Amino acid sequence: MATPETAPPEATATRGARLLIIGPPGAGKGTQAAKIAERYGVPAISTGDIFRANIKGGTELGTQVQQIIERGELVPDSLTNEIVADRLQQPDAAEGFLLDGYPRTVDQVAALDAMLAPVGAELDAVILIEADVDEVVARLLKRAELEGRADDTEAVIRHRQEVYAEQTAPLVALFSERGKLVTVDGLGTVDGVAERIASGLDAQLGR
């Protein structure tokens, strides 16, 4: 068993951080989120996963969310904020977390700020994964072909990329102003991107 003197640096120096990851569809955000959460010893919290788990489990929340989605509407901020606030109060998130899929709007950022304020905390860093649109579209088209997703046409995929860019632009500007943004090129091997993220985060967090 490793002692404090012999433990690898990342086992001691990188534990705990309050993080957010942002990236376009197809940029490998989910894969990198898992690696970041493991490296920092924090839970990866995806609002989408929480919604899907509740729908699958038939919970009261799941029923609410399913009805909203079936009506073709977006889950309201009030409900999403409530879910995230509850999740962040759980013991495993006490020393940090990695948020994925929330906050998506400036209003949600304000809500998150309010959640963290009572314990004198704030986001430590925001990882922005960037990727060339044409490269990502090509990647998603290939995946759609392999998985038989006939509805994932190039036009649909490009529209999703445009919606993402429009939605995240205000967040990117906000976190850049706060000095929290860590921008990383998301193209390349999984390990190569992970190394760039680790290097950027270490610099941001002073580790």
Score class of each variant (00 low, 15 high):
139 R>M: 09
70 E>S: 14
119 V>M: 03
74 L>D: 09
67 Q>S: 13
127 I>R: 01
105 T>V: 11
28 G>H: 02
47 T>G: 03
81 N>Y: 02
19 L>P: 03
44 A>Q: 15
26 G>Y: 05
6 T>N: 12
122 E>A: 15
15 R>P: 00
52 R>W: 04
101 G>R: 07
122 E>Y: 03
12 T>I: 15
30 G>D: 04
74 L>R: 11
78 S>E: 15
140 L>R: 15
16 G>Y: 04
54 N>C: 09
7 A>C: 10
71 R>G: 12
125 A>H: 06
79 L>N: 05
97 F>Q: 03
27 A>I: 14
131 A>T: 14
3 T>V: 06
96 G>H: 03
4 P>W: 09
82 E>L: 10
124 D>K: 03
106 V>K: 00
13 A>T: 13
48 G>A: 10
72 G>E: 07
88 L>A: 07
58 G>P: 02
128 L>M: 12
59 T>G: 08
42 V>R: 00
121 A>W: 06
25 P>K: 12
100 D>I: 11
132 D>L: 06
77 D>Q: 10
107 D>N: 14
29 K>W: 08
47 T>L: 08
53 A>F: 04
111 A>D: 11
39 R>P: 04
3 T>K: 12
49 D>A: 13
94 A>L: 05
116 L>V: 08
39 R>H: 14
26 G>N: 07
96 G>K: 01
6 T>R: 02
78 S>W: 07
83 I>S: 04
83 I>C: 04
75 V>D: 03
135 E>H: 14
52 R>K: 13
48 G>W: 08
84 V>M: 12
22 I>N: 01
36 I>R: 00
18 R>D: 03
79 L>F: 08
55 I>S: 00
56 K>W: 00
117 A>C: 02
106 V>R: 05
83 I>Q: 03
11 A>E: 14
32 Q>I: 11
108 Q>P: 10
85 A>G: 13
136 V>C: 07
133 V>Y: 02
96 G>C: 03
134 D>I: 09
91 P>W: 09
37 A>C: 05
86 D>M: 12
